[in-house]
Design a protein around this nucleic acid. Sequence first.
DNA 1: CTGTTAGCGCATTCAC
DNA 2: GTGAATGCGCTAACAG
Lengths: 315, 315
Amino acid sequence: MQNRLTIKDIARLSGVGKSTVSRVLNNESGVSERTRERIEAVMLQHGFSPSRSARAMRGQSDKVVAIIVTRLDSLSENLAVQTMLPAFYERGYDPIMIESQFSPALVEEHLGMLSRRNIDGVVLFGFTGITDAMLAPWQPTLVLLARDASGFASVCYDDEGAIQTLMQRLYDQGHRHISYLGVPHSDVTTGKRRHEAYLAFCKKRKINPVAALPGLAMKQGYDNVARVMNSDTTALLCATDTLAIGASKYLQEQRIDTVQLASVGNTPLMKFLHPEIITVDPGYAEAGSRAAQQLIEQINGHAEPRQIVIPARLA
Amino acid sequence: MQNRLTIKDIARLSGVGKSTVSRVLNNESGVSERTRERIEAVMLQHGFSPSRSARAMRGQSDKVVAIIVTRLDSLSENLAVQTMLPAFYERGYDPIMIESQFSPALVEEHLGMLSRRNIDGVVLFGFTGITDAMLAPWQPTLVLLARDASGFASVCYDDEGAIQTLMQRLYDQGHRHISYLGVPHSDVTTGKRRHEAYLAFCKKRKINPVAALPGLAMKQGYDNVARVMNSDTTALLCATDTLAIGASKYLQEQRIDTVQLASVGNTPLMKFLHPEIITVDPGYAEAGSRAAQQLIEQINGHAEPRQIVIPARLA
DNA sequence: CTGTTAGCGCATTCAC
DNA sequence: GTGAATGCGCTAACAG
């Protein structure tokens, strides 16, 4: 742990100067094939790896990024992070994890801390209350997830497409009385966009919209199904799988098995508990790797911030 | 981001030498109260914070630890990590996250990477296949979670106590035919210990043990309930809440509501889906903060590796 | 193509 | 008590 070798040692061991070793390390051109190979052999043989702190101090980045999730146990965010981690490690970045718990104040606090620590970049899972102002300092090296903001890089889900796909599917199955369980409009993507997509479809197809927007929690789904159900209702669309799980539990308890459920988000839990529910995969996995890739490119100056939308597809 | 001040700047701004600033930074003695206050004022005013990389290079630790979870979506591990993160941040450590996916090879690979990277310490959620040999190099700065190994620091759950508490509770309720759904013995803690605790209780109370040990997954619970149920069975004890959720689904589908379920692990999902199930809280939250605390003490040489057992208590 | 030199920001002697 | 000098491991000029 303590007596690690340095480029100086490698240089001595392979009979060259430090800078040549450095050049090899950084894949710079201007080193003869012969010496390069020799040095690489020595490095490999001794299991050498350069000190990150030293490189970092020399102005390079320390190759550390932060992932700020809302909650560690968010089913959807988990799926995205699951693909993000390998993507970062593959490129030599260490991802540190932070839980925002939906608190803008906590995010602000952590962002401050991160800038003091000279972190390279941030992936932030957006939620209600995050303001452009608090993100501004990070604009060049920030990727927002599940939410967009003009001027910032973002990876979003196709909320309209997801809802429309599900509605169309229900409609094709013959359903004409489709209720909706969603999230308040203060949440722009999961809340407003999905709800409006529902309303738009209803209008187009002359369906009478029946909706409630309680929130994101399972219990809120459970508690509010009754409000959107009437004797005509044959199908219920949920904005998230979490809501759908809550709603399912209620319907199950009430022994109501004549209502077709549908929801955005096919997480493993959902697939296990309720394979009968029609779901759309918003592309969590793809979102994760795309976000990591985009952030790395921004850090290296290879890409400008841009908005990415992941296409939704029927599961 | 680029023009951060250095101790040199702070020194100049407060009219002292660099070393004095350094002393203040490290809370060293030998600085007059007056100058200390002045320097601290200047630092505060300019929002100065020392470069981590520079300190790290000077032989200090980089104050980065790794948390290796088995799966990002493990309900129990989430609860532990949730308390771990704040504990680390509080002490100035950045926690990087890694997912082992129950693969010893992956763990080995990552541990290698971590040592090359000069990480300060590791919290590892144990599972079948991890060998002492691969952990040995990390012995001084490793904390094993949910599993113990002699010579290594660990934070474990009280498997015997948890099972015994649940069995006693069921017994007190009058149950005399209690089946068990668990995990293979290759998993020493969740598998072997819990199963043996079940058997021990059965023996003591002259209960006829009926058990199956399929594994950790919900589906395995679902698929194997039938094997441990007979006409006498009045209660079913599950080694984990995940198994219990699987089992519940099966029982629900079969419209069997005469069997009392019990399980180790009262996660939020469990409490929502099946509040009727009797659960024991193994102390995930406490385990997380204790693990973080123990690791930090080991890193700073304030504590030797030791085994910590978290007491279980009825939820 | 390759070696030499000079710092990066900080902690640590060692003088004063 | 305090400041000046030294070097951590590395990259970036600049020489050869």
